[in-house]
């Protein structure tokens, strides 16, 4: 796996190849598999992502009773046609909620990069596919772009809330999604890295504070805001707006910030929203049920 986005960009320009191809080649080399085998597996992963959106059941509630049904509300509001941001972003929001709620309700999802952040990438990519009428083979390539970015973040820092706060989960998912979105829109390899930098810059310091230690509150709704950050960064990038801090340095800043996040705010359920009066009450009620 690559240690920096710069390394990927260098390989791209040396071999005159696209970002996704470089990531695919690296995976084949590391796993000792053929290009076809890797592509086949990514294709199945893409199918599983699409399924995790399609199979949403609005009637389901999570075991804690805290989650379920919100994607249906969002969809009903979208259909009224009088929303603030219009149909495209609304559909993206619906999808992020669907997949994240499905996760809380024990349905099958693709952890990308984690189960808690599983709604971001499918929401961004499926909605762009639908809007731009893209083929599945293009989407599979976009997943290599996302995976390449995630791999660099995992190598330089981490992708776990317990270690790096939510910036490392929802933040990483959003950075991966925005790079993939730029690719799908015909952006350059450098622009992919740029979008990644802009996304992370906006999400630095996001803490991990799940109420009662469950991957539900605020996780599900953060999947929605993660997608919004991702497309905003992609859109700025496509407009030619540049990050002033190089992408790898932005990832390193996330690491430095992550190191200074106290343990209470790293998935222990002891700080932030989890530590509020209501958060505690919810936890106590659930513990009594155990």
């Amino acid at each position: 796996m690559f240690q920096s986005l710069e390394e990927i960009l260098q390989a791209c320009s040396e071999k005159k190849k696209l970002f996704w191809e470089i990531v695919l080649e690296d995976d084949c080399k590391e796993e000792g598999i053929t290009r076809e085998e890797s592509l086949e597996k990514m294709h199945l992963t893409w199918k599983a992502m699409a399924d995790s959106d399609r199979s949403y059941d609005p009637g389901l509630l999570s075991a804690s009773g805290l989650s379920g049904g919100d994607a249906a509300k969002m969809d009903a509001w979208r259909k009224r046609g009088t929303t603030i941001c219009g149909d495209f972003l609304n559909r993206m929001m619906v999808r992020a909620l669907r997949v994240a709620e499905s996760n809380a309700c024990m349905k099958r999802i693709v952890a990308a990069p984690t189960a808690g952040a599983c709604g971001v990438i499918p929401a961004v990519l499926l909605t762009i596919q639908e809007e731009k009428k893209l083929k599945d083979s293009e989407m599979v390539r976009a997943l290599y772009v996302a995976g390449g970015i995630g791999g660099v973040i995992a190598g330089r820092f981490c992708i776990s809330g317990a270690e790096g706060g939510c910036q490392a989960e929802i933040g990483s998912a959003a950075a991966m999604a925005s790079g993939a979105a730029v690719y799908l829109m015909g952006g350059t390899n450098e622009e992919i890295a740029n979008a990644c930098a802009l996304t992370i810059s906006s999400m630095l310091g996001l803490v991990c504070d799940p109420v009662a230690g469950l991957v539900e509150v605020p996780c599900i709704k953060r999947n929605v805001t993660g997608t919004m950050n991702a497309v905003a960064a992609a859109e700025m990038t496509l407009a030619g707006i540049q990050t002033r801090i190089p992408p790898d340095e932005v990832i390193d800043a996330m690491k430095t910030v992550g190191r200074s996040i106290v343990p209470e705010l790293r998935e222990t359920g002891l700080g932030g929203l989890a530590a509020t009066q209501t958060g505690q009450k919810i936890r106590e009620a659930l513990e009594r049920e155990q």
Binding site: M1, T45, M106, I109, V110, A111, A115
Partner: peptide, 19 residues
């Protein structure tokens, strides 16, 4: 870490460690 641990695994939620 391989790419299918970043984009994946495909799993039943909600938590990779707890589920």
């Amino acid at each position: 870490m391989n790419i299918f641990n970043i984009i994946g695994p495909v799993m039943v939620g909600p938590s990779s460690s707890h589920t």
